[in-house]
């Protein structure tokens, strides 16, 4: 298995020394993200996120399937992540690394378990037919902070996604093509965002946001906090690593909340922009078949 290339002693010492003097290699502040960019594809549900040199593509798709027998009233929702050698030579195909397992667990906990997507609204005929929504996350380039970028891409893709409209008449399910009826967005309840702190120093007293790959290789611990803009924690994961003062963790959570709010409004802006671009004729209002729903 190719192991990740280790940074040299000089690099490790320097990154730490610079951080102790409040300097980062790319001249950012400790709590500053790299430039975040989000572009939607031509299709619904394709989102490409770049965070500095980290690049992630998420694609949401849906099909009609049979629900799980133990959950007849719920649709199926899954997120699959793939870290291919494209992102870094340390990744191999078909052999999940620790990074990949932890990443997919975090996305699962942040987006799926926090109930961001209303899975009950995916049910078509109880116990017989439901939508199966899946998001495929592809990491195109890995330069640190995959978690935040992937989570943002997943949420963006799902909020942008529209599934085909359906109707049931006399027990017959009809799925309409986009030409017949305008596709409808998913039932979305709230938008969680991951904010990852990287911890440095013997005592774990330096914490920075959005670490690059070089910084990630030197860090002694990390803490990922998932929040939505309403100030709800969806998940916290500080999985081991150097011990950090409890007070410092609370501070980190506070800053993470403001970051999550920034991410949230950035995404809202982008979605509105995209909707405007698509709605050239200005008749989208007339075409929607669904009642307005407050999304979070």
């Amino acid at each position: 298995m190719p192991r990740e290339a280790e940074p040299s002693l000089n690099e490790k010492t320097f990154v730490l020394q610079a951080l102790q003097e409040k300097l980062r290699l790319d001249g950012r502040e400790f709590d500053q993200y790299r430039p975040l960019e989000l572009t939607f594809g031509e299709e619904y549900g394709v989102a490409e996120v770049s965070l500095g040199k980290t690049k992630v593509l998420a694609k949401a798709s849906a099909e009609v399937t049979v629900p799980y027998p133990d959950r007849p009233l719920d649709g199926v929702f899954q997120i699959s992540t793939e870290l291919s050698p494209m992102a870094s030579p340390a990744f191999e195909v078909n052999r999940p690394t620790e990074t990949e397992v932890l990443l997919s667990r975090l996305l699962e906990k942040t987006v799926r378990r926090s109930g961001a997507l209303d899975t009950e609204s995916l049910c078509l005929v109880a116990g017989q037919k439901c939508w199966s929504v899946r998001v495929d996350v592809h990491v195109l380039s890995h330069d640190g902070n995959l978690i935040d970028a992937c989570c943002f891409a997943v949420v963006a893709a799902l909020r942008h996604f529209k599934k085909a409209d359906t109707s049931i008449e006399g027990g017959v399910l009809t799925v309409y093509t986009p030409a017949e009826r305008e596709p409808v967005p998913l039932g979305w309840l709230h938008s969680p965002f991951c904010v990852t702190w990287s911890v440095f120093g013997e005592e774990g007293d330096i914490a920075i946001l959005d670490a690059t790959r070089a910084e990630e290789q030197v860090r002694v611990g990390s803490c990922t906090i998932s929040l939505n803009r309403h100030g709800e924690i969806c998940q916290i994961a500080k999985l081991g690593g150097t011990a950090v003062e409890a007070i410092a963790l609370l501070n980190c959570t506070g800053i993470a909340l403001t970051k999550a709010k920034e991410l949230s409004s950035y995404l809202d802006g982008k979605l509105a922009e995209d909707a405007k671009r698509r709605d050239k004729s200005g008749r989208a209002e007339l075409l929607t078949a669904e009642n307005d729903r407050v999304t979070g």
Binding site: R113, G115, E232, I233, C234, A237, L239, A243, E245
Partner: peptide
């Protein structure tokens, strides 16, 4: 000490 090594929260809860 008050130093936290592991902090895992898997459910939705208010920050406060």
């Amino acid at each position: 000490s008050d130093r936290v090594i592991v902090l895992v929260c898997e459910s939705r809860v208010q920050v406060s």
